[in-house]
Every structure is written in C-alpha cells, then in structure tokens.
Design a protein around this nucleic acid. Structure first.
Lengths: 151, 151
DNA sequence: GTAAGCTGGTTGTATATACAACATTGGAGT
DNA sequence: ACTCCAATGTTGTATATACAACCAGCTTAC
C-alpha cells in the first residue's frame, strides 16, 4: 500500500467516525504528557489525581471518581498503585467505605518535580493545537461535563 | 465532600490540564460507540479497523498501523482478537513480515449489522457535541494528523 | 557476497479503561 | 431494633494503549 492509498483510507475512516478522531486525539495528547512525566515515573492520569488531592486536602475514592468522572474500579486500582509508591496514604477500614486519601510528603515532592515537566507538556500541546484548538478543547470539555452532571 | 466542593475541584484540575480534558472527552465519546456496538460484540476501535480493511480490500498490520496511527503492538493484538472471531483472515508466513489481512464473509455481515448501531452512536455524539463541537473535533483531528505526518 | 541495518511482527510488562459481580457498611424507614 | 437499600470499594475479565526487547526476512552498502 503506497502513501496515497494510505492517506485516502485514513480520510475515509476519519470522515466517517467522530469516535476515531477523538481516540486519536487522546492518544497523541496523552502521549505528550506521559512522555514528559516519564522521567519521574508518573502518568498523566495519576498527576491529575495528585493535583486534585492536593487541592482538596483529602478525599475518598468515591470523591475522586465523582470529581474526575472516572470509573470507580479505575480509581481503585490507580489509587492502589499510587499508594504502593508512597505518594498517598489511604486511611479507613481496610474494606469498608469512606476511606480518607491524602498526599504524603513524598507525594508533594513528586508534584513539585512534576510541575515543571507538566508545564512543558502543556506548552507543547498548546503549540500543537494552536490557540483555536485549545479553545475548542475547552469548549468541548464544558459541553461534555455539563451533560455528565445532568445524569 | 459536598457537590460544590467537588465542582470547584473539577474546575481547578480541568483548568490546569488539557490532557485531562482530552482524556475525559475520549472516555465519554468512546463509551457512546462501545455501548452502541456492544450488542454485536464489537468495539469502536475494531469497527474502525474493519472499516479500513473493507475500503482497502486488503492490508498488512503495518498498513493498519500507519493509516490509523496506532502502535504496532496494539494492532497486532487487536488483529489477533478479530481473527479469533473469524471476522478477518491473516495470510502470510506465520512469523515473517508482509501479512495479508482481509475481511471474511462473517466480517462483512458483522459490518452490515454494525452500521445501524454505529450510526446511532454517531448521531448521539453529534447531538451531544452540537454542530460547533463536531467542527471543533474535525479541526483538531486535522491539526493532529498533519503534525503526525511530519514525523 | 557478506554484514549491517531496516521493516514487519510478536511478546513481556505496565497502565487506563469499562462492565459485572461481589462484599461491606451505614443509614433510612418502619 | 431490625431489615433492607444505597453508597463504597474490590476483584475478575476484557480491551486499548505504550514502550522495550526480541526475532525473522529483505535490502543496502561496502
């Protein structure tokens, strides 16, 4: 398959499916953040959780799930990984509900280191998308989160 | 944590990170397609590959990887799953390069069934995002795929 | 003509994601 | 006070994703 054919096919699939475009966009952008944070062993998603926790002071897994609109099982496992890295502590009855999750001193140090790296990724993304693209993302996010809150 | 606090936190994280917004957007939109296709056991991503293959007639794994801009290991495993479902056939030297992947009769039937379901998801997405949102996605996709082709 | 390198594919490992099934725990209602 | 239900969390299973290491075959350079 030559490049022309490939390009044509890509256009066909892309023209058809919004889902495809969103997934590709996600792969590209998330990759920028993940690569940037890779030197300190942090993933973009975990960085978001750390950020939320540091603003909140403390939160339960359910809080994280609600605030960041993530599936509770995803939160459960991610929290577990972060706990193993000693970035956070989880207090409360091992099994029972109502945990209290807080960022550890180590976690705060990590965040400090993450900030510079994250900023670079954010800038790279902004350059890639352009001002217009960034605004589009902001708007799309508003639309989606508005629809989510209705449920 | 009450709803006001949660909402405020969400805004903070979202305001900070474009990556977060894109991931959320991806989760919401991909979920629409996955749920729509769920009755026939097809995932959005696999549907895209099937579509590409049916337009192409045949393609190698490397072609899929290039056209849809997916990691080759992702393609390898997804192709494997689709093959197990008899939606596609893979011909060529078991190990060696240059496979020839084609859609089977079963695969074509599946696509026919998928089309109606996919269309519903597409419409649902369009309603969710609005005309403006859809245009934003189109534009973002162009920007991203243009940057990709430069590499 | 041979060695080095490129291309194509697979596999190991890790994370994010979704859905379903399950356990636990508190509280609400009677 | 007791029962039932809603909210919380965990775990099983499956897919998508990324990166790295690896293998096989073909091409290119010398």
């Amino acid at each position: 398959m030559n490049e022309q054919e490939a390009s044509k096919l890509a256009k066909v699939v892309a023209a058809e499916c919004l889902g495809y475009r969103v997934r590709l966009l996600n792969r590209v952008i998330t990759n920028i953040y993940d690569r940037a944070l890779q030197p300190i062993g942090l993933k973009a998603n975990q960085a978001n959780i750390l950020t939320m926790l540091s603003y909140a002071g403390q939160a339960s897994a359910a809080d994280i799930s609600r605030v960041l609109v993530m599936e509770k099982s995803t939160v459960s496992r991610t929290v577990d990984r972060m706990k193993k890295n000693s970035w956070i502590t989880v207090e409360g009855h091992g099994d029972g509900p109502s945990q209290t999750i807080t960022v550890t001193a180590q976690g705060r140090e990590l965040m400090a280191a993450a900030h510079a790296l994250w900023k670079k990724a954010q800038q790279q993304t902004t350059e890639l998308l352009g001002e217009e693209g960034v605004n589009a993302i902001l708007k799309l996010h508003e639309t989606v989160s508005a629809s989510k809150s209705k449920r």
